[in-house]
Design a protein around this nucleic acid. Structure first.
Length: 807
DNA sequence: AGCACGCCGACT
DNA sequence: GTCGGCGTGCTC
């Protein structure tokens, strides 16, 4: 039995980003396994760590002992530990950050520092204000005491032996315990005897409850009992006091989908397209081969049914499936389809769940109680051990890329896991990312195409309206004549309308019409956003808030105007021009409350409204038969973001939202309003012509030397002092130019599109490369070289391998 | 990240 | 002589 454990400690710094060795105490030898969390002494604190290895001897002398294990079963299996190493290597993050991102947040350590008074004698020696604090209890939280006296005083007294300072390591979330009442015996006769031995007979209520337990010896919670006997709490406790019942705590899953009925569904007959697409996937499952498929299916072509039937095969083989969907489309509609087919074999993971709920869903996976997990990005780390398929729906979505540390892409993790499990990965989309489609074309991925809609429904007809002409002809409203007319028509026909306001990028800002001043955040160099509810201007980078100016702060003019259109404004306008229409508005404001997203959609599905008005969150996944008109109020806003992917994003968004119309019997129509009707993203979305868009966009990417022709690395350098940032950025750029192959291009330093956030200036260096083994070593050197400056001078350097946003 | 240690100026 | 500020270096 190995006596020493190597532990990655929960201290995210460069110097501690390596295993530390500890003795395993006698009693835990054989108990502590690789992948478990343990509490270890580190310096004079107690912290959490992950066991990553066991060994007989260590090069370090004077090892300390592990304090205790935090798990009974390892939380990370061998495979996930490997994935953690892969993550930290590929995204250049600390090991501890990689491990933590793979686990539900409930398992993240919570630390508390306590100060305990040694004895009453010590109490006498304290100043009066401290005496008061310690009068009631001997142990207090350090941070509560710290408010009253200086830390050095506390340390000094601790050294003198008045206090003891202790550290506690706990989980952030916990298993839910439910209190049950249970008979003290499960033998009928014994139970009756016990009652008969009581000095007094039971009260009427107590007797009733007693009879319930006598009939079936099952544990009951108070509320369960109250369904049979009203006001049961007091009599239950009385029975406990009389020794007939006892209280017991049982662990219970918090099931976010409890009390919900899921219509059971069976496999549907497949269309020819679907059949053709699924066959190679099924073969790969059968042959236990690793393969990446790109399933390119137009909106409404029935990709989900293909997923479902592939999963069915996987389950029949006794294996497990991971399905990733973008957070935003993790709607009840989607969940229903999986729960309907696979019932309680499905775990669901998304950001709407509480800490505890996430933890419980995760434990269902860990305990092998489910076979399928449907979830957002982080569900890719589901602790399955026998994966048969990994599906990524809406593959092109940027929410699969995590924007903070570790900056990983779920697709990369999926492929890495599929290699270990010898299973297929299916990337599905109506508008695949250029990267994926290019790989499919090269034969790296296998391309599967479904270009026909199910139900014989046709793709909707799309009309582009040039808003410049509207303006010329005197229409100053946000609805073009065409759109307005069609909306009236649908309202008359009792059909439903989806209106999308593509507000990404520059939303409602305030500008002076006389001098052109745009009100900006004093800390962030970005225009402030107008919030009508509070009548305030807000910066959504640093949270700065200010009242709305009545006159221009620059020139004093009172011609202040609000530019950009918010959903609220559209809603108001709709109320004026189509007062009879019932409108549901969906945006961050109306969906922030838990479950509100779902409720709004259900209402719309049940026909409680005629118009669904929203931001891009309504572009995906909705499948309502009665939608026959989709209006895009302005296609342009996403087009002019300074980002090489803006055309791609616009095309995807327009195609996706168009796909909401006419999915069933009724034919659909789409109106796209724009100020740049000639742009290829808009034109090709009109024709639903992905292939042409792909060809055109590939030319642009080649010209601009962007992905998929080049890989990117984005380095951000931030500091309060512009001069200093620039100097560091310049050094970094020079260093990279010297280290990298000549074929790699180092661009910059340049000021970031948002020059200042939270009073820190932002500069960036961009690397474009095709193949360069020196990239990672060079970046690691940069991290090491500037590490001290980062700690001391408040410099931050962040590295994003394959960034999704260049802002 | 914390925390100890050590050096320095400021004050009882 | 003592207290508290902060720069430096270490944690198996």
């Amino acid at each position: 039995m190995k006596k020493i454990a190597s532990v990655i400690v929960d201290v995210p710094t460069l110097q501690t980003n390596k295993p530390f060795d500890y003795y395993i105490p006698e009693e835990f030898i054989g108990h502590i396994e690789i992948g478990m969390r343990v509490v270890v002494p580190f310096g004079n604190r107690h912290i959490q760590g992950f066991v990553v290895g066991l060994k007989e001897r260590s090069d370090i002398k004077n090892l300390k002992e592990i304090i205790e294990p935090m798990d009974v079963i390892p939380v990370l299996n061998k495979e996930l530990l490997h994935i953690g190493d892969y993550l930290s290597e590929k995204t250049l993050c600390f090991k501890i950050a990689a491990y933590q991102v793979m686990l539900p947040p409930a398992l993240k350590a919570k630390y508390e520092k306590y100060i305990t008074l040694i004895d009453d004698h010590a109490l006498e020696q304290l100043p009066t204000d401290l005496k008061k604090l310690f009068d009631k209890q001997k142990r207090l939280k350090w941070k509560d005491v710290e408010k009253f006296v200086s830390t050095s005083y506390l340390y000094r007294k601790a050294k003198e032996g008045l206090f003891e300072v202790t550290y506690e390591v706990k989980n952030q979330g916990n298993k839910k315990k439910v209190l049950y009442y249970v008979p003290t015996t499960n033998d009928v006769e014994h139970f009756q005897n016990k009652k008969n031995q009581l000095s007094k007979p039971l009260s009427q209520k107590q007797e009733e409850i007693y009879q319930v337990f006598l009939r079936h010896f099952q544990p009951h919670t108070v509320s369960q009992m109250e369904r049979k006997v009203a006001n049961a709490r007091a009599p239950l406790n009385a029975l406990v006091n009389k020794g007939l019942l006892k209280k017991e705590e049982y662990e219970q899953y918090r099931d976010p989908y409890v009390n919900r009925y899921f219509q059971k569904t069976k496999a549907l007959p497949l269309t020819e397209d679907q059949q053709k697409a699924i066959t190679p996937i099924l073969n790969t499952i059968e042959e236990k081969q690793q393969e990446v498929f790109l399933l390119h299916g137009v909106t409404g072509s029935g990709k989900t049914e293909v997923y479902l039937q592939a999963i069915e095969k996987v389950i029949n083989q006794g294996k497990e499936a991971i399905v990733l969907v973008p957070e935003i489309s993790l709607t009840p509609q989607m969940v229903n389809r999986f729960k309907g087919r696979f019932g309680n074999l499905v775990a669901v993971l998304h950001s709407g769940l509480s800490l505890g709920e996430k933890y419980d869903e995760w434990r269902k996976i860990q305990r092998k109680e489910v076979k399928v997990v449907v979830g957002a990005r982080s569900a890719i780390f589901a602790p399955f051990e026998n994966i048969g398929i990994i599906i990524i729906d809406e593959e092109h979505e940027n929410s699969y890329k995590q924007e903070d540390i570790p900056r990983y892409h779920a697709r990369d993790i999926a492929i890495e896991r599929s290699k270990i499990h010898h299973c297929p990965v299916v990337l599905g989309s109506a508008t695949p990312s250029l990267e994926s489609f290019a790989r499919a074309k090269k034969g790296v991925y296998k391309l599967l195409t479904m270009d026909k809609r199910m139900n014989q429904s046709r793709l909707p007809t799309v009309e582009i309206v040039d808003m410049r002409n509207e303006l010329k002809s005197g229409n100053r409203s946000m609805f073009s004549a065409q759109l307005f007319e069609k909306m009236q028509d649908r309202l008359a026909k009792k059909e439903q309308i989806v209106l999308m306001l593509n507000r990404r990028g520059y939303s409602s800002f305030v500008m002076c019409r006389d001098c052109g001043l745009v009100v900006k955040c004093p800390n962030c160099e970005i225009s402030l956003t107008y919030h009508k509810v509070t009548d305030q201007l807000k910066c959504h980078y640093c949270g700065f808030e200010t009242g709305t100016p009545k006159v221009c702060p620059e020139c004093g003019s009172n011609h202040i105007r609000f530019f950009g259109t918010g959903t609220q404004k559209v809603e108001e306008e709709l109320g004026k021009v189509l007062p009879e229409a019932r409108v549901i508005r969906m945006d961050v404001d109306t969906t922030s409350r838990k479950g509100s997203h779902e409720k709004l959609l259900t209402d719309f599905g049940q026909g409680k409204a005629d118009i669904l008005l929203g931001t891009q969150m309504i572009a995906k996944g909705l499948d309502f038969p009665n939608i026959t008109l989709v209006g895009v109020l302005s296609a342009d806003s996403s087009l002019h973001i300074p980002d090489f992917r803006s055309s791609e994003k616009t095309f995807q968004l327009l195609t996706q939202v168009s796909g909401r119309a006419g999915r069933h019997q009724l034919p659909g129509e789409v109106i796209i309003q724009t100020y740049t009707p000639e742009h290829y993203s808009v034109q090709l979305a009109k024709n639903h012509d992905y292939l042409q868009f792909y060809r055109h966009e590939m030319l642009m990417r080649k010209q601009g030397q962007y992905p998929p022709f080049y890989y990117l690395v984005l380095i951000h350098i931030n500091h309060e002092d512009v001069q200093y940032v620039y100097t560091v950025a310049e050094k970094i750029a020079q260093f990279l130019r010297a280290q990298l192959l000549p074929s790699s291009k180092v661009l910059g330093p340049a000021a970031s599109p948002i020059v200042k956030i939270k009073n820190k200036y932002r500069y960036q260096v961009l690397i474009k490369y095709k193949h360069d083994p020196n990239i990672t070593p060079a970046l690691k050197k940069i991290i090491h070289h500037f590490y001290q400056d980062q700690l001391k001078k408040g410099l931050t350097i962040s590295i994003d391998m394959n960034p999704y946003s260049l802002m």
